[in-house]
Design a protein around this nucleic acid. Sequence first.
RNA 1: GGGCAGUUGGCGCAGGGGUAGCGCACUACUUUGACAUAGUAGGGGUCACAGGUUCAAAUCCUGUACUGCCCACCA
Length: 722
Amino acid sequence: MKTLSSRYDPNGSESKIYQNWEKKGYFNPDKIKARSKKIFSMVLPPPNVTGTLHMGHALNITIQDALVRYHRMKGDAAIWIPGSDHAGIGLQSTLEKKLKKDGISRFDLGRDKFLQKAWEWKKLYGDIILNQIRAMGASCDWSRKKFTMDEDYVNAVETAFIHYHKQGWVYRGQRVVNWCPRCGTSISDLETDYVAEDSKLWHLKYPIQDEPGRYVVVATTRPETMLGDTAVAVNPKDGRYKNLIGRNAILPILERAVPIIADDSIDIGFGTGAVKITPAHDLNDWQIGQKHKLPLISVIDERGKINDNAPEVYRGMKAIEARQKIVDDLEKIGLVAKIEDYEHQAPKCSRCSAAIQLIPSMQWFVKMDELAKKALQAGKAGKVKFHPKRWEQVYYAWLKEPRDWCVSRQLWWGQRLPVWFCQNDPERYFIAVEEPKKCEICGKCQPQRSADVFDTWFSSVLWPLAVFGWPKITKDLKKFYPTAVLTTGRDIINLWVARMVFSGMEFMGKAPFAQVVINAMVLTKDGKRMSKSLGTGIDPMMLIEKYGTDATRFGLAWQVSESQDLHFNEDNMIAGQKFCNKIWNAARFVLNQSEGEKNIYSLVAKPKPITVSDKKILAALAKIAKSTEKNINKYAIGAAIRDLYDFFWHEFCDAYIEAAKNQIRAAKNKTQVQNTQKILIYVLANSLKLLHPFMPFITEELWQSMPLKNKKDLIVESWPKL
RNA sequence: GGGCAGUUGGCGCAGGGGUAGCGCACUACUUUGACAUAGUAGGGGUCACAGGUUCAAAUCCUGUACUGCCCACCA
């Protein structure tokens, strides 16, 4: 083994080893013979093609790859499907930001040209991402990779929508939605971040009609919405206002009369106990408006500006500008009773951070009642289990009271709704996948397809079905659905996981995965969120170049514990690098012992211990094999790798290898020497197997040099049974 | 406002009713035929705080403080 240098260098060998695995088809279970009847299937949560992979992805890939490699070695038909997500609003807003730097808006380009640019972006980043996944050593089946806008995937999306439509769960309606004026689209509650902002609570005096000098004082954080007020509401139990109920207040400036109504939902203790009601621009007010049949006066448009329903002086102003002007104008006429400092939770677009406006808008919805019930039942029946268990609370909390799902977005990048509007009667529409030859409404016109696209998640939630060919009942779908385990971040339990469960239940009658593993979140060393914009992000590729893939994977896995977020520390990659070196050199020593001898040892027969050290190391090996398996089955990969480290470094290298040197020196005959050598080979070989799921490259490389009989590549070797 | 986590040596973390552990960093010695990205030996912690249960608490219970995350339409 003179060819092995005393330092392990990952850079030369990793990509060659990966190519060899891929070439031999090991990632595709159709190409290798399963040794067990079990099937282990998994889908990679598809990364967004918005940018490159981050440490969170790296951790997730490390964990998943360890799982799939373990099961492959167990002899299961193991499959792991890779792919990527078109990330509707995410990519569109990223691309628009980039265009803006060149002074171009998407409207300057037009839909077709913009989409062309989006596809170029997708190609560029999609390829980068796929190469990153490879560099991580991920043993996923590239022959089956998917993208959420592949032709067959779009078909799956449309099929799902039409199915919901046939069930009567799809409806179109005007609702107050979160609207991002920058992205120009509705966004969901889940895409809205609330940011604490120092603001004011303005107490405004609304004169009572026919009673000069009397006022009702309302408290608001958004005075500009006063332009669209259609009522003032008080709690019916509130003694202060009892005699005002049923009368009218006059909106100042506008001189418009609005009724004073009673509603139980009003909190007597907050502000003044009287609330201005703006059904068009507030969710709560919308509901009150529905209940009391109040008119809807929209005063803010889709660009976040005051529209023509407002007095001329305010028209065209941004909402925030109008706010100041209205307060000034009211102060001039003495109708501001009080201004309090107030910390307001201001809604922001989670994609672009623009201030969200609530505006009424025509959108498409999917009713959640039946679907949420299915996901809830799947959980309660134990068909979907969370690790750690406590995350199921998040899942249940949301499913208990889900809002109907607004599935339409006013974006360009995405799958378009299969909805067609009649040109002669634009309020009427029908649903069809293919471009219709004639209008199903009037029979004459050439109907126009809706410009809306689906919410990104509408397609993402079909991932575990669509990657296997659904809606076609393919061989893959039959064989690999449902998957075994989903590993993902806690931030998308509701957005993605819960909805995948009901999609699977609805379309396949089975939950799409039995286990959900919620990974630790990778934070900076100081516990801050890693983000490119803050400059706190770390590129996993940089670590791979610096330390090698195995060391990077080791460093990540080493830091993982079940319950904790992970404060990323690069020192752990150094530990990984050192560990690789340790494995390398231990192997060098062991292989030197058997120099010149090839293909002589068999792992089938366990060697006989002679000395106390022999006994100890064989017992320790049996123990670590058992605990590693147990840890993997519990998804405790951090515990698994930490125990393996201790075993290999301390019990094998520090204790046994040192003892072996003495044993060989002190041996009375050749048999005794050979027995020690045999144990060294045996323990090393099995250690390489146990380490392989976590550190695939160095273990495979060393395995190639092992003097073993009937050896296969390590990736498809059998998991040790000791 | 509700919920969930965390608080253990300088840093990052594991453990978990009965002499406090790991990696990195630190100190001393060692280039001996696997490895100086190493070995041997060592220094360093009243396990956030206050009560309680117990023969025994870092570990279980209650409360407090701080940190972080999630959920929620409080105008």
